[in-house]
Amino acid sequence: MKALPGLLLLAAIGYLGKLTEQGIASYGKAHHLHLPNIEYVLWAILYGLILANTVGVPRVFRAGVATYEFWLKLGIVFLGVRFLLGDVLKLGGLSLGFVAVELALSILLMSWLGKWMGLNPKLTSLLAIGSSICGVSAIIAAKGAIDADDEDASYAIAAILALGAFSLFAFPAIGHALGMSDHAFGLWAGLAVDNTAEATAAGALYSDTAAKFAVLAKTTRNATIGFVVLGYALYWARKSQKEFSGSRVAFLWNKFPKFVLGFLLISFAATLGVFTKAQMADIANLSRWAFLLTFAGVGLQTNIRELRKQGLKPLAIGAIGEFAIAGITLAMVVGASRAFEL
């Protein structure tokens, strides 16, 4: 019940975003104009961002707005219905290889940049984890595991989200300029954008198919969260001479994002033909409604002032690292799409 006002706010902002998308499309149709199709996701984020950073979000709404993480995960589980195992297998090997390269690259690059610029080592670890796996949940998971400060964690989250917001505008423009296919673009967005909501949004801004591949690459990255966080936890535990208690398997299971299991289960059921075509469309629509709430929440949670307060060095390191990763993954994907005609 405490969450109700905030939920209504998410729904109102998200729905306004949907109306804006439809309004622009029907205006263009009526006047025979070719207007760019800007999806509801970006409008929802934009409206949320403006509201949060002008009038602010009153306390009564906060509990409901904080549920956006649930809607994100729910939306992703539903999205499983659009991934038939055949598609996954087709993409599997190549995408997995790319994910491995991206992980190694981001961790090495961020650690080196942080050391080189004399950044606090725990913040460096958080930025490395955030940029290699998945912005927010990885940072939250890692924060507990390596005992980092709240300020470091919120800065790392803010930096990852801000860079992701920038990529929402930059990525589709670059994709269109290079004439990338839906498949190639989605793969790139899933590899280079760090927040799951923003990676999905970047894909969705390009096309429905691109969103599909973005989520696929992104969920593969997300699935490695346990291993990377475990590695960092062991590193920092050893460094602070603290005894690491409990079994490693239990630790991995604890940190493993469970919604990935739901996603796989729904995808498996759809592959086996459990749902009719109409039922699959219904489930896919449920995922759109869940994302509508998610993206309104992402906008509302982005605090521009908070970001400015923390100084620019970590953001600069984050930005340099992210640009380099985006560039290298773009080269990989474009190269692969030439070679294998993605």
Binding site: V77, V81, K258, G262, L265, I266, D282, N285
Partner: peptide, 30 residues
Amino acid sequence: MKLSVDWWSVITALGAAVLIKFGILPHIPW
């Protein structure tokens, strides 16, 4: 036992999928 957001998202989604499968939830428009 308190379930995490992750588990709730899985339970909710699977529940909704079952309801759709057996025609209990009506058609969902977009």
